[in-house]
Design a protein around this nucleic acid. Structure first.
Lengths: 233, 233
DNA sequence: CCTACCGATCGGTAGG
DNA sequence: CCTACCGATCGGTAGG
């Protein structure tokens, strides 16, 4: 497969995965690609088994239904993306540093799960309402955590933005729509893509400065224009 | 069909729309809402006619097929959003000013068509390949025009960004994913939403300063709840 | 784990 | 002979 370079799940990479789980993962990988390309309703069980070279009852031995496969994919990807802003309660770092790390994790998760990361948003009508509710709760927590960090960092004088919620939604949107244009193996490799995306997300938050490695590229002073807008800082 | 949408919109605002076109527009409005909420495959002809309180043959008198309805909606919205960066050849203004106007038009079109603006991306599998090709050509031109303006304005010393294509795609992503969170009648009215979105888009491009008028606070929108369909800028 | 097959529901159209 | 529809049902295909 093409995209497993970034997605390193523990058991899978250590080789201790059972044959049963291997077959399950293969079904999931093929189904993920078909759902990504043709949508939930546009993908039939017959499509999946044809691509796998197996029969329908084979598939139904591993999964109870079409939605079972879809929800498994959906949950994995959404969980990976939406827990990026979780930090341990004893993490005492500055808000701006936690934000930068969290947004980097968020960008990395979205690049890694670019096929299924936003299934929940695009195919909400096809999902079980109870399952959707759990995903919505997780998404709400993500935005709550992101908004809190944004406002803390702004109070610290590190950020410049108007509306926290709208800023957070814009950040989520860049990752959420990435599936329409990102393809692995393109002009920009996955690692550089994550770095660039993180920079753009920090830009939306109105970060005054970038990490030293990136700041060297800027010829014209960033702080000159910003300082005029917010003389209080 | 696809090109008559402009004529229909003009007649709509002047009040001289025929009874035939009124009924056609009513079907489109109901179908747009259902496609938006349940997706293309998740919406049946039976759903649409039930919501309308008519029969299927009534609907098939106005449209030749389910995809005919969908493509009409898709084309209108995509056309409105993706022509935002068109400027007359004799427009001699500075790139930064054209960019700001174009991004404002783009934000306004996406707010106005928040239900159907990104049907083409989410439901590509359901659309006719030839139709999809026309949409992709239009999208490519949008990004080409946007990239050109971005690079011109950067050469003028007005912008600060790394990669033009990635910046343009990020700008498109914010508008493209807005359908997941924007609802008219929310905390921020449509006019303020367009202004704020435009500011955020300019921020991604690395604009050093904002126009004075945009510094106004967002809050109680006067026209909250009324979607702006025809933003003449 | 396959062959064979089901209940239901889909988009689209017949005659009047 | 046209328009604007209605009650009933078509052939094909979906998930299971």
């Amino acid at each position: 497969m093409k995209t497993e370079s970034i997605r390193t799940r523990g058991a899978e990479s250590s080789g201790s995965i059972s044959v049963h789980d291997q077959k399950r993962e293969h079904i999931l990988a093929v189904a993920e690609d078909l759902f990504y390309r043709n949508g939930y309703a546009g993908t039939t069980i017959a499509d999946i088994v044809r691509e796998l070279g197996v029969t329908k009852p084979f598939l139904y031995y591993y999964f109870s239904s079409k939605s079972d496969i879809f929800e498994t994919l959906c949950w994995r990807a959404s969980h990976a993306c939406l827990t990026a802003m979780h930090f341990k309660p004893d993490d005492e770092r500055a808000a701006i540093d936690k934000l930068r790390e969290g947004l980097h994790r968020f960008a990395a998760a979205n690049v890694s799960y670019f096929k299924s990361g936003t299934f929940a948003y695009r195919e909400g009508g096809a999902l079980d309402p109870a399952f959707m509710k759990k995903l919505r709760t997780m998404a709400r927590r993500f935005y709550k955590e992101l908004c809190a960090l944004l406002e803390q960092a702004r109070n610290d004088g590190e950020l410049d933005f108007d509306d926290a919620k709208l800023t957070a939604l814009s950040i989520g949107s860049i990752a959420g729509f990435m599936y329409t244009w990102y393809k692995p193996g393109g002009r920009i490799g996955p690692e550089d893509m994550v770095k660039e995306l993180t920079r753009i997300l920090m830009k939306i938050a109105g970060a005054y400065s970038q990490p030293a490695s990136a700041a060297s590229k800027i010829g014209r002073g960033r702080n000159a224009g910003r300082a005029i807008r917010n003389p209080s800082i």
